[in-house]
Design a protein around this nucleic acid. Structure first.
Lengths: 208, 208, 208, 208
DNA sequence: AATGAATGAGCCTTCATTCAT
DNA sequence: GATGAATGAAGGCTCATTCAT
């Protein structure tokens, strides 16, 4: 007497986002190669065929995940830079703090570890990631440092090296947490570390 | 009547070490999952069946690789600490410099990336690695910082955070190089970066 | 108040023919199995669902294509035979020449190759094709030969064998062209070959 | 009490030939695309993995089939040509007769139809077949015709066209038989047709 | 001890067919 | 009548593992 549940529903507009969300969570949890599209489909509530309706293949699905979940973060940082007024050291802290915050909330920051783990086996993905994400992120921080130097706020350091010195520690801690959260008995808090590292950095960067 | 074993024949005792060496080099180059045992065997000059003679399966081979190739590096650092006389900042630099050097020469430093990439899929191995390698490495650097503070050379910072701040940047750069050497158009030199980062750190660490 | 159906709107009666035309062209180009219904639909300007509205499945569509596109050619030959006056060798040439011409212009002559390729997988279709197309075509040529013999123009050869000897070469060249046009570096012209073969045949057929 | 049957036996030397034989028979029966490697393996008494032990992929398996089963036929024809003494028309007949015989006995002559059916979908196979089989076969017959002309036995015809005229009819009859054996109610005998066609040809070819 | 032939489970991808809209 | 989103079965290929020799 009750209406039989239809075999499926048309959810064209919602599907891609649902699949991307499922893929992000599984990619970050298990890695790219170890994630089966069957599982992505199941988690998204569809079948494998449906995944291929929206994404040409596994690699394109991955790229879509990056585009939808990582790029917006970078763009928000670029906006911050464009609109910034005031001390550059303050902007540096704002960027680092927001990054640390996102690391604790959004799975999208797990993509870094994913890429580190899979880059050698999927060179095309690595290229895509470096071009779309890495270079732009570096440029963002490099810009802040350059302007700080120009403003006389920072010493005239090597910008490429300084950019790495600003980015690497926080990224490493995040990557580490993702891999060893279950067995590292001496974890550090991401935001505490971000602040500590920022202040340490600043001593060495600031002009006297 | 008895056929004398020729001098040049490989003793069977050497086999496991040869297999481990081959496995290290391929695991570091391609990662755990992407390395085929066929290739490990070929590189070691044996056949696939022989690998299974010495190692129960791929995971056990992986564990053996970690055990045999990483610990000696740490021990040499501990010796340096035990015998050190003079300024602690100098020891800090010595440790970082030697580490950076090894990164450019020895495949064993590629294990870090390997572990980061595979830890989630091999929790027991992750536990082993954290206990035997990570904790000991941290303790080494933490000791240097603590003694520097005690000697009035460094400010009384949070030692756990400072240890991470000292270790993470260089490790991140190495991990990164390993994953993106082919497509990162803006690579930095490991030792240049080690020196840059050391000096920056020192500004923030030193007591005035 | 009533919306008049615009004159330019396609009548629904035209749909099947449009789909058949699209299917013919793709089947001939790519073969039965390799032709996707998606592509047929796209070429016909409809969607895949619409194809299933008019044809129960891919096989039925295939049958429809054969029915609609091959028979008219045979009928025109039969007409020629019925109305022929003069030497039978001339009619033979006329038939061969027209056939060679059609081979260069109409996709429908590609059906032969299609049937050769798919007959084993679609036995019922093969039966249909043999009965409706093959037997009738043979009869046409056999008739010409028989009348030529009766008229003393040709020697009294085995008509069944002679019919095959007349038909096969040209058909083979066409079939071949269709399959190997891209990689055969020594193609021959269809009409040159038809003429060459006709004259060769004639030497052997003619009474002295 | 009875010894349990081993899961498999080592039959290294025999395997490739067994797999090739199985593949030939299925390819000819069903076509290249429609033949599943699972079925080839089953018919050869092995598993799919074993097929890949000896052949890199389906296309390479096909090439091996051609190499092992078709090329020897051509080579034997080339030997016949090299060693021939006497009238060229006789050699022509010998070649055609042997070909017709093989058509009735060996599955390998079914490859022609196979290639016709699949060439468009597997261009690399088509290229291989044309280069390794087609060109060489044509050259064989072309040589006979050329020498016949040089010897004054045949009229100075267009050799390329004449070669096709010699080869095509018999090949077409064979191809046809393979596709329509079940439903053609007017089959002709291959060897009868070969003889008939040969004699017809000869009339047109011979110098007066 | 060592080999390497053989296995079989697993995964990405394709596409004819179905059916909710 | 027409659409196109969704399905699901099928097949090529890989590779860790086993085991007869």
């Amino acid at each position: 007497m009750n209406t039989p549940t239809p075999r499926w529903q048309r959810r064209k507009d919602a599907r891609p986002a649902e699949i991307i969300e499922a893929a992000l969570s599984l990619f970050v949890e298990r890695g790219f190669a170890a994630t089966r599209l069957d599982d992505v489909a199941k988690l998204a509530g569809v079948t494998k065929g449906t995944v291929y309706l929206y994404f040409a293949n596994k690699e394109e699905l991955f790229k879509a995940v990056v585009r939808e979940t990582v790029l917006p973060n970078i763009e928000s940082g670029e906006t911050l830079l464009a609109e910034h007024q005031g001390r550059w050291a303050d902007l540096l802290w704002t960027l680092l703090e927001r990054w640390a915050e996102r690391m604790e909330q959004s799975a999208s920051t797990g993509i870094s570890k994913l890429m580190i783990a899979e880059a050698n086996n999927f060179p095309e993905l690595a290229r895509f990631y470096v071009e779309e994400v890495v270079i732009r992120s570096r440029k963002l921080f490099a810009n802040v440092i350059e302007r700080g130097i120009a403003a006389g706020e920072f010493r005239p350091v090597d910008v490429a090296l300084a950019t790495r010195a600003v980015i690497s520690p926080l990224m490493m801690i995040k990557v580490w947490k993702q891999s060893f959260s279950l067995c590292d008995t001496e974890p550090v808090d991401l935001r505490d570390f971000a602040r500590f590292h920022y202040e340490l950095m600043l001593q060495g960067l600031q002009a006297r």
